[in-house]
Amino acid sequence: MTTYREIFANREFRALFAGNAATVAGKTIQMLALSALVYASTGSPLLSALAFLGGLLPQALGAMTLLAYADRVRPRGFLAGWDVARAIAALVLASGVLPVWGMLLLIMAFGAVDALSGGVRNAILVDVLPGGFVLGRATLNVSVGAMQILGFATGGTLIATLGPHRALAVAAVFIAFSAVITFLGLRTRPPRATGRAGVSATWQGNRTLFANRSTRAVLLAAWVPNGLIVGAEAMYVPYAGDWAAVLFVAAAAGMLTGDLVIGRFVPPATLNRFITKLQALLAVPYLLFFLHPDLTVGAVAVFVASFGYAGTLGLQQRLIDHTPEDLRGQALGLDGSGRMTFQAIGAGTVGLVAEATGPATAMTVAAIASLTVTALLQPRLRAREDPRVAQPAGTSGSA
């Protein structure tokens, strides 16, 4: 599958696309409304930030404890059921019955399971679009960016006109719609793996993935260089002040353009050759910030750099190629949660550097560090070895 017409002719992909778009819009509205609600109740910027990003923080915990279930659930029932649970949680938040600490605990608990749901959703995309994962993943990435923009715009309008409680109720409607369309649009599939799941199985699966040099290199390449550049993006506000939105828009536009171009016009069979080049492109333009460029030059540099995020498409395809089917969901879930975690680490690390050097120098340091990691990992990414992760002795695919 190499064209948008082909993938959208697939009924299951249309359901995944619409369901994912509705979920992203609903979650974005929820994050914004909950942050506004907590700030109005407490006046605390810290608690407001936790309400906005708190659901992302526990994903590493979910990756370490729950990901074995990603290959041991029926995707259709799990994804639809999880959206129902998220819609109910949004209604609970909208009701106002929970204290602030209760709301924060609720979103963090759901955040831990989001790592699992991401693995299930990405893995079923491989089944729905045989040979078309890269284009399908790129298309979903574009929809995520568009729905986040729509979600922020809609959420802001709803909060201003209806208040945060009713905005949360609207978020619940979006997420419930996703549950319905996912359940009706996907067909029933059996789990990829059998056997017990849980913490020990998750740890064993993660160890299996990291024991293989190729898989380990792919995961590190997906996590570390990108996380460092996200750290550079965290410096937009200190660097540009009130005009930081220009840099954020340029970054979003570059990322969407990269997904569109690479996903559509680069065949999956040749995408491997572009991974390192795209990851280098992600960092090189940020070296210009050492010269303190004006806003126009800075925005162009950010746009060009963000095109390089499309390298993640090649890394995800390579991860699929190097992972046996009964670990596919866990591998993709680990990839997603690891990227979230390293983005937070990158933002914190670059922020610490900026405290001592200033934002422009910190962005340059992040670019140099990202390029260094990319260069160190390149030989591992080019190495040829068995494309499938070997199962540990004594196991039979049930992990």
Rank of each mutant, 00 (worst) to 15 (best):
L67I: 03
L50Y: 02
L168H: 08
L53R: 00
W101D: 08
F342N: 08
W223M: 14
W223N: 10
R72N: 08
H322T: 09
T3D: 12
A160D: 11
R189E: 12
V249R: 04
L57E: 06
D83C: 10
A138N: 02
T3P: 07
T2E: 13
G338K: 11
A169E: 14
G131K: 06
M1D: 04
A68D: 07
P392S: 02
A138Q: 05
G263Y: 01
G195C: 09
I175V: 15
P392E: 04
A331D: 09
G185F: 10
A331K: 12
T2F: 05
S117D: 14
L129Y: 09
V350R: 00
G136C: 01
T372E: 06
T215C: 03
L98Y: 00
T276E: 12
A49T: 15
S143F: 08
L61T: 10
A123L: 06
V170W: 10
R76L: 09
A344Q: 14
Y69C: 08
F210R: 13
A221R: 04
Q59E: 05
L315S: 03
A123N: 04
T276R: 01
V237C: 01
H165S: 10
A146P: 01
Q343G: 14
L57M: 12
L129I: 03
R384Q: 13
V199Q: 00
